[in-house]
Computed example of a mutant assay.
Amino acid sequence: MRVPDRDAMVRRMLEQTPPTVPPDLYPEAVRRGIRMLRRGTATRRVLWLALLAAALAFVIWASVARPWVEPPSTTTPPVSDW
């Protein structure tokens, strides 16, 4: 579309009366917005609880398994002085 045609189309659109807005649009938008905020809050809480549970499970596992300790030797060292 050429620039003069586009300008003329925009001018025609601006000269028209704007379409009417349904009267129940605002309350519906507010209701949906509140629901979206509640879902976001609930999602964040669930994710924080999952992170806390994972950290707690790791701490419990690490305290029981003690992965930083060397496992005991399964063979005896050679005896050289007899």
Score class of each variant (00 low, 15 high):
G33H: 05
L49G: 09
V64G: 02
A57G: 06
L49W: 11
E15T: 02
L56T: 05
R6T: 15
L25M: 11
A29P: 04
G33Q: 04
Y26S: 14
A55P: 01
R31V: 04
S80V: 15
R2Y: 15
L37P: 00
P78A: 00
D7Q: 15
R39P: 05
P72G: 00
E28I: 09
A54Q: 01
P78R: 03
R6M: 15
D5C: 09
D81I: 12
A29R: 10
V3Q: 09
T43V: 11
T74S: 11
W68T: 02
A53K: 02
G40L: 07
W48V: 13
D81L: 15
P22I: 02
W61S: 06
P22A: 12
V3Y: 11
T43W: 07
M9V: 11
P23V: 09
R6F: 14
P22Q: 06
G40H: 04
T41Y: 09
V59T: 11
T17I: 15
E15R: 09
M13I: 13
Q16L: 07
W82P: 13
P77G: 04
P19R: 03
Q16A: 11
R35L: 14
A29M: 13
V79N: 07
G33P: 01
S63V: 07
A42D: 10
L37T: 12
G33M: 11
L14Q: 09
V69P: 00
A53N: 03
R32C: 04
V21T: 09
L51V: 08
Y26G: 09
V69F: 01
A53H: 05
P23L: 02
M1C: 13
P77E: 09
R31E: 06
T41N: 13
R66V: 00
W68V: 00
L49E: 10
V10P: 00
P71H: 09
P19H: 01
S63Y: 05
T17M: 13
M13K: 12
V3G: 03
L37V: 14
P23G: 06
P27C: 03
M9C: 12
P23C: 07
A65S: 08
T20M: 14
L47W: 02
A65D: 10
P71A: 11
L47Q: 01
D81M: 14
V46E: 15
R12A: 13
D81N: 15
Q16N: 08
G40A: 05
R6Q: 14
L47A: 06
R44V: 13
R38W: 03
D7K: 15
R38V: 11
P18M: 10
L14K: 07
T75V: 14
A53W: 01
V30F: 00
L25E: 06
L56E: 03
P78D: 00
A8G: 08
P72S: 03
R11I: 06
P22H: 01
V59R: 14
A53I: 02
D24K: 04
R35H: 12
L49S: 08
P22S: 11
W48G: 05
A42R: 07
L25A: 13
